[in-house]
Amino acid sequence: MTDKRKARAVYDDEGMNYLQTIPRKVVVVYIPLAIFMFVLLFPFYFMGVVSFKSHAELLNYRGLQAFWIYEPTMEHIKHLLFETEYPRWLWNTMLVTVSSTFLSIFCAVCAAYAIERLRFKGSKYVGMSIFLAYLVPPSILFIPLAVMVFKLGVFDSNWALILTYPTILIPFCTWLLMGYFRSIPYELEECALVDGANRFQILTKIVLPLAVPGLISAGIFAFTLSWNEFIYALTFISSAENKTVPVAMITELITFDQYNWGGLMAGALIGSLPVAILYSFFVEHYVSSMTGAVKE
């Protein structure tokens, strides 16, 4: 399979490329690409630069000063990690994200297997409604959910988020895993059934090992989604020590008399790192999960 694809790729690479002259390719491809990259990376560059600049240097813009750090300093990061509750917020975010991701993956695996493989009566409609559930945005649910969360007595606790994040994650993960399960041959399951395995054994011993790439894709996508979640966390959490990083950055770190840009950018940088690191290891899975969900 891989060899075949590679062979095709080589053949395709040759394609009609000889028709493109180098100056033309520079104008049509490389220059626009460079501009795109510049614009897309511009904010991150400054996030990094500002995080390590001293207060004095931040206010000084002359010439190309803004683009470079002349006296790098760790004071913002030190302040953030040792004089604010930032580590606590990071911990909250991590706890909520990991729990809701695992909960969602468990639910999604069961649901996707049921819809795609057990094909129970009405499974088609259930599959359809799962897709529709994916299209329900959090911005229309947060008020009723806030009322429910309050009545359930989990307001202002991590549980409020662990229980509500799966509503965003399960539909997506189920939809993605359904695609992966579909690609596993029925014959494998039939063999196992003949050999006397029950459904749970088939799922855990045959289907899941074969769907590992799908599990990783769904897992990291769910992780990123819940790490980035903002509106539920903003609504359901009120005390500083329970906040997640995105919410705490907005509500706790911004003091309106004087903006502490260095601290804010350092917080943004550190808060982005976990997803960025995870992402850098699993780029391919990430792309496949993003495009997979759309292609279905």
């Binding site: 990376l41 904010p43 400054f46 995105p246 950018m265």
Partner: peptide, 26 residues
Amino acid sequence: AIVLLPFIVPTVLSALAFWWIYDSQD
């Protein structure tokens, strides 16, 4: 991989960077 970065970084945190880029004085 780099092109996708704006999509994966938490929106709130990149919005903060934009807030700085758009600041009225700085």
